[in-house]
C-alpha cells in the first residue's frame, strides 16, 4: 500500500510543481475566456440594438418612398447611411432611393448610389443587383463600353442569365448582331425552364432572326 502512497505523493508533487510554473497562465486563460464571453454577449446585444435602430430608420425610408418626393427619400437614406453604413439596411435603402431618383430622372445621383452599393454592400447579391441596374442606366445613356465593363465583372453563376441577357441588349444596341445572339443564347442556357424571364430573352433572340 505504501508504495502506492509514494506514487501518489510523487504525482501530487509533480502537479504542485507544474502549477507553480504554469498556474498564472491558467488563471489568465480563464479570465480571458470569461472576459471574452462577456464581451461577446455585450457585442451581441450591442449589435442587436444597432440593427434595431437601423431597422427603424429603414422603415422611415420606406415611408418616405410613399411621398414620391426624391428629396425626402434621399434625406432619409442619407441619415441611415451616415449612422449605420455597415448595416444590411444601408444598401437596401440606397437601392430604394435609386428607383425614386431614376423616376425623377436624376441619373447622376442614382449612379452614385448604385456605385456605393457595389463598393459597400456585404451581400454579393445586392452588389449584382446594383451592377445590373447601373448597366441598364449606362445602356440608355449609350455609354456602351462602361455598361459592358460592369457586365464583365465577376459574379456568381446563378446571376449569369441576367448578366448575359443585358450583354445581349448592349451588343444589339451597338449593332453587333452575332455577338448579341451568342449572349442571348448563353442567357437561355442559364435561365430555368419555368422562369417567365426566359420568354423575354427568347423573344429578343428570335427578333434577331435566328431561323435555320
Amino acid at each position: 500500500m505504501s508504495t502506492l502512497d509514494l506514487q501518489e505523493q510523487e504525482q501530487v508533487d509533480a502537479l504542485r510543481g507544474w502549477w507553480k510554473e504554469n498556474g498564472k497562465w491558467v488563471v489568465a486563460a480563464v479570465v480571458i475566456a470569461l472576459l471574452g464571453y462577456a464581451g461577446m454577449q455585450f457585442w451581441k446585444s450591442h449589435q442587436a440594438q444597432q440593427a434595431g435602430e437601423a431597422s427603424k430608420l429603414y422603415v422611415e425610408v420606406e415611408k418616405q418612398i410613399m411621398t414620391n418626393d426624391p428629396k425626402r427619400v434621399n434625406d432619409a437614406v442619407a441619415a441611415l447611411v451616415d449612422k449605420f453604413g455597415g448595416s444590411a439596411y444601408a444598401p437596401r435603402a440606397q437601392l430604394l432611393a435609386v428607383q425614386a431618383n431614376v423616376q425623377a430622372k436624376d441619373m447622376t445621383r442614382a449612379k452614385t448610389q448604385l456605385q456605393w452599393v457595389i463598393e459597400h454592400a456585404h451581400e454579393t447579391g445586392l452588389q449584382d443587383t446594383a451592377r445590373l441596374k447601373l448597366a441598364s442606366i449606362l445602356l440608355d445613356e449609350k455609354n456602351y463600353d462602361e455598361a459592358l465593363k460592369q457586365l464583365n465583372a465577376t459574379h456568381p453563376e446563378a446571376f449569369t442569365g441576367l448578366y448575359a441577357d443585358m450583354k445581349g441588349d448592349v451588343l444589339s444596341a451597338q449593332g453587333k448582331t452575332e455577338e448579341a445572339r451568342a449572349a442571348y443564347k448563353q442567357a437561355l442556357d442559364k435561365i430555368e425552364a419555368k422562369s417567365m424571364y426566359r420568354n423575354l430573352v427568347q423573344l429578343k433572340l428570335d427578333g434577331l432572326g435566328d431561323a435555320k
Binding site: P91, V98, G125, K133, L139, D140, K204
Partner: peptide, 17 residues
Amino acid sequence: DAYTQNGYASNAAVDNL
C-alpha cells in the same frame, strides 16, 4: 424585397420588346 422591388428595364430593352 431588395431583389423583387429592384427589377430594372432599360428603355432600349423595353422599346425592343
